[in-house]
Computed example of a mutant assay.
Amino acid sequence: MPLPGTLRTVAATRYVTPLREGGSLPGLVEGDDLGMYVLKFRGAGQGLKALVAEVVVGELARGLGLRVPELVLVDLDPDLGRAEPDEEVQELLRASGGRNLGSDFLPGSFDFTPAVRDPGPDLAARVLWLDALVLNVDRSWRNPNLLLWHREVWLIDHGAALYFHHRFAAGWAPATSYRFDAADHIMLGAAGSVEAAHEELAPRVPAAVDRAVTLIPDDWLDPVFGDPDTARSAYRSYFTARLADAPRWLADVEAARVARV
Rank of each mutant, 00 (worst) to 15 (best):
Gly192Tyr: 11
Ser140Cys: 04
Val29Asn: 15
His158Gly: 01
Arg257Lys: 13
His158Ile: 01
Val134His: 01
Gly65Asp: 03
Ala170Tyr: 14
Ala170Asp: 13
Gly47Ala: 00
Gly102Lys: 08
Arg67Pro: 05
Asp77Pro: 06
Ser237Glu: 07
Leu39Phe: 04
Leu25Gln: 05
Leu133Gly: 00
Leu60Lys: 08
Ala196Glu: 11
Glu70Ile: 10
Leu130Tyr: 05
Pro18Lys: 08
Ala244Tyr: 04
Lys40Leu: 02
Arg242Asp: 02
Leu34Met: 11
Ala183Lys: 07
Arg42Gln: 08
Arg179Thr: 14
Pro119Lys: 05
Tyr178Asp: 04
Thr13Tyr: 12
Phe168Leu: 12
Trp129Ile: 00
Val74Gln: 10
Asp118Ala: 08
Leu3His: 04
Asp77Ile: 07
Arg42Pro: 04
Val127Thr: 09
Ala53Ser: 08
Leu51Ile: 03
Ala259Glu: 12
Val213Ser: 14
Leu243Phe: 04
His150Ser: 15
Asp218Cys: 10
Gln90Lys: 12
Leu133Ser: 00
Ala208Gly: 02
Ser177Cys: 08
Gly192Val: 02
Leu28Gly: 14
Arg179Asn: 08
Gly171Lys: 08
Leu64Trp: 02
Thr214Asp: 13
Gly63Lys: 14
Ala175Lys: 13
Leu48Val: 02
Val253Gln: 01
Trp154Ala: 03
Ala256Gln: 15
Thr113Leu: 08
Asp79Asn: 10
Leu28Asp: 10
Gly102Leu: 13
Glu30Phe: 05
Ser233Leu: 15
Ala244Lys: 06
Thr9Trp: 05
Val258Leu: 12
Glu152Asp: 14
Lys40Ala: 02
Pro78Phe: 14
Ala231Asn: 09
Val127Lys: 13
Arg117Tyr: 01
Glu59Tyr: 07
Asp131Ala: 00
Ala231Pro: 11
Phe164Met: 12
Pro18Ala: 15
Asp86Asn: 11
Ala95Pro: 09
Thr176Ile: 15
Ala202Pro: 04
Leu243Trp: 03
Arg67Cys: 05
Ala170Asn: 11
Leu188Lys: 14
Glu87Tyr: 09
Lys49Glu: 01
Ala50Ile: 03
Arg14Glu: 15
Glu70Phe: 13
Tyr235Thr: 03
Tyr37Met: 15
Asn145Pro: 02
Gly27Trp: 11
Val224Trp: 01
Thr113Ala: 10
Ala170Glu: 11
Leu201Gly: 10
Ala190Asn: 12
Ala173Glu: 10
Leu130Phe: 02
Thr13Ser: 15
Pro247Gln: 03
Ala255Arg: 07
Arg82Leu: 10
Val134Asp: 00
Gly58Pro: 04
Ala83Asp: 10
Glu88Leu: 13
Pro78Lys: 09
Ala207Asp: 06
Leu106Gln: 13
Ala125Asn: 03
Leu92Lys: 09
Asp222Trp: 01
Gly171Ala: 14
Leu64Cys: 02
Phe110Tyr: 09
Leu92Val: 04
Leu106Ser: 15
Ala251Ile: 03
Asp252Gly: 14
His198Lys: 00
Leu215Asp: 03
Pro206Ala: 06
Ala190Val: 01
Phe41Ile: 00
Gly22Val: 02
Glu195His: 10
Ala183Ser: 09
Pro144Ser: 12
Glu254Gln: 02
Gly22Lys: 09
Pro119Cys: 00
Asp229Met: 05
Met36Glu: 14
